[in-house]
């Protein structure tokens, strides 16, 4: 049992956090220069799952992708370190003892732990999305055409494209172009049920766990050559996206509680320790 305990405590050490974080900084800065010089190698991460990217690009270009693998390794280390450290500190926080003199301060001290838990949740959600998510890019439909949602019996059909063209004088560069749009899609399920939804730029829609995003479409300007209405859709299934949203919300709560703690503890003991 003793080696397990000492390994656990080694994993929970703040000095390990320090080294992992600095390692990440150095690795990402090196990655910046490599990424800048080899955009074509990392761009496919936007359309492939992590495993597909590793076997098609990553593993065959280790001289330029090493920093990405090191990044994943360091992140994994940081997650384990954060988990161990948070468990140890939370155990100390809940340990029964005398009721704290400053009850609010006792609760506010949870702020860093909230952020640490949220950090782990966010990273796990990214991993889930990159490993088991569906990322189907460039689904092009002309008006009246249909396609099937990946792995589903539901058909998706492009009905029509509606634009709200800019008609003012202020945005000269944007005249005859739409400020907003509604691309109407009909979803026909196997049981005959039909649903009509409108997708737009920055305005995806959700159907049966899929998110459908507008990549490009036509017509997207007034006048000129008449074009057949079409749409280019990104269809995704990100099982981790709710987890990601929850993690982000928890992190924001942690940040705000942390600020309250800092503002409140300006002259108190733990803040003095931090600024000593």
């Amino acid at each position: 049992m003793k080696p397990v305990v000492s390994a656990w405590n080694w994993l929970a050490r703040p000095s390990l956090t320090f080294h992992l974080l600095l390692g990440l900084v150095a690795d990402l800065l090196a990655g910046y220069f490599i990424f800048r010089a080899h955009l074509q190698l990392f761009g496919p991460l936007n359309r492939l799952s992590l495993l597909d990217w590793i076997v098609t690009y990553g593993i065959h270009n280790l001289d330029t992708t090493w920093w990405f693998f090191l990044f994943l390794l360091l992140l994994a280390g940081l997650v384990l370190n954060t988990l161990a450290c948070t468990i140890n500190r939370l155990a100390a926080w809940v340990r029964p003892g005398r009721p704290p003199a400053d009850r609010l301060g006792h609760w506010l001290a949870l702020a860093p732990h909230l952020m640490h838990i949220a950090f782990i949740i966010i990273l796990v959600s990214h991993l889930v999305n990159y490993v088991v998510g569906v990322n189907d890019q460039n689904n092009i439909l002309r008006q009246g055409d249909s396609l099937r949602l990946p792995g589903s019996a539901t058909q998706l059909r492009l009905e029509r494209v509606e634009n709200d063209f800019y008609a003012g004088e202020r945005l000269k560069f944007y005249q005859n172009r739409p400020l907003s749009q509604r691309v109407w899609l009909t979803f026909s399920q196997a049981d005959g049920q039909r649903t009509v939804k409108a997708v737009g730029i920055n305005s995806p829609i959700w159907q049966e766990g899929f998110s459908i995003h507008l990549k490009s479409y036509a017509p997207d300007h007034q006048g000129g050559m008449k074009r057949t209405p079409f749409v280019n859709l990104i269809i995704r299934k990100d099982p981790g996206i709710r987890l990601f949203a929850a993690g982000t919300a928890l992190f924001v709560v942690g940040l705000l509680v942390y600020l309250v703690q800092v503002l409140r503890n300006g002259t108190r003991k733990d803040h003095r320790e931090m600024t000593a």
Partner: peptide, 15 residues
Amino acid sequence: LGWSSPVIWEEPTMT
């Protein structure tokens, strides 16, 4: 919302 993923591998400044 705009590009379909919270992380987009397009800009090196992301790193």
